[in-house]
Amino acid sequence: MINPVHLMALGAALFCIGMLGFLIRRNLIVIFMSIELMLNAVNLNLVAFSNQFQSAHGQVFAVFVITVAAAEAATGLAILIALYRISRAVNADEARILKW
């Protein structure tokens, strides 16, 4: 039996790594990847608790999170392509056409 505390620690570490990447990187593609890392950390916790309590609710929520992550990736990357067509850059600092 895996120690649930270690599982939660792994999830927390993964979330922190994702958040760190979200904050320190300026390439929009890598920022999206960091969001995926954070969503995966959440999934890990959901599945861990699902196993801990012998209930399938957590797995259902994990699959819903995966669905939302796929939708988010598709929409986000479409926005990125549109941004690239306008400004030829995928750098978050250069995306400032909405700035007043």
Partner: peptide, 16 residues
Amino acid sequence: LAGIYLLLNAEFVAAV
């Protein structure tokens, strides 16, 4: 992560 899901008896989530 899919491997960890397998260890946690969540085979379907691992496949997904």
